[in-house]
């Protein structure tokens, strides 16, 4: 990975993190670049710090050592509120499960980011299109049946819920999509289907996809793979 600043969606340098100062670092990353529009698979067993890394990259956790650049700009040294703003504007996030607010309809869940971020309301991939129209577009792209659009989210299957979550991450075309083991609750057929549409759609809007999982079989869907080891070599077995 070459380091032309403006070409990287995320750029990590010498990042170290520990949950409490007494113990060893659970993360120690010398170099990690995610180029614009490319997808990266971060693999690591459970407890290896994948979620912790994503929290750092999305600006929820503060960096203790090292630096993170987001879209060519220093990110890790910004105040928490600034990082929260950049996250709202530039990052779509998909959780492992329970992504949706139960008291909103499917459509309202999808349009949520655009209600909060002006940037995502004016996303580059859409111009004069109405918000619901865009939400419907993304739901269709992710093969969510039209019949469930106005149903309460509790009626949806887990696979449908994850695809609605992906639609929410994609709406407004943020530069970066982050997914934290979004397939771990899905069966094999659903996984393949979900991975195909997610990677396809990210590519279609030129967003970088950052995807973590313990499941090495998924690596084939990505442009690159990064291995996150349970601990820094030499410190623990």
């Amino acid at each position: 990975m070459q380091n032309m600043a403006s070409d990287d969606a995320l750029k990590v340098r010498d990042l170290r993190f520990s949950w409490d100062t007494q113990t060893a670092d659970i993360l120690n990353i010398k170099n990690l670049d995610i180029p614009m529009g490319r997808s990266l698979f971060i693999h690591g067993p459970s407890g290896s710090g994948k979620s912790t890394l994503l929290n750092l990259l999305s600006g929820v956790l503060s960096v203790q050592h090292g630096s993170i650049q987001l879209l060519g700009k220093e990110f890790s040294s910004l105040r928490a509120a600034k990082r929260d703003k950049l996250r709202a504007d530039h990052i779509g996030y998909i959780f492992q499960q329970f992504n949706l607010l139960p008291y909103l309809s499917v459509l309202d869940n999808v349009t949520l980011p655009t209600k909060i971020s002006t940037q995502r309301r004016q996303g580059k991939a859409r111009h004069a299109r109405a918000l619901t129209e865009e939400a419907e577009h993304w739901l269709a792209q992710l093969q969510v049946p039209r019949s469930v659009f106005s149903q309460p989210v509790s009626r949806l299957s887990v696979g449908q819920q994850q695809r609605v979550a992906a639609a929410r991450a994609l709406i407004g075309s943020p530069e970066i999509i982050i997914a934290d083991e979004p397939t771990s609750a899905l069966d094999q057929q659903n996984i393949d289907n979900f991975m195909t549409v997610l990677t396809q759609q990210c590519r279609s809007i030129g967003s970088s996809l950052l995807f973590v999982s313990h499941d090495m079989q998924l690596a084939g869907f990505f442009d690159a793979t990064y291995d996150l080891h349970p601990s820094t070599p030499g410190e623990q077995e």
């Binding site: 928490a80 509120a81 929260d84 996250r87 709202a88 909060i116 971020s117």
Partner: peptide
């Protein structure tokens, strides 16, 4: 907690 995590992912600040 889920709800709040979703809000945070969407960009909710401390003040939010």
């Amino acid at each position: 907690r889920r709800e709040i995590a979703i809000f945070r992912a969407l960009g909710a600040k401390r003040n939010t």
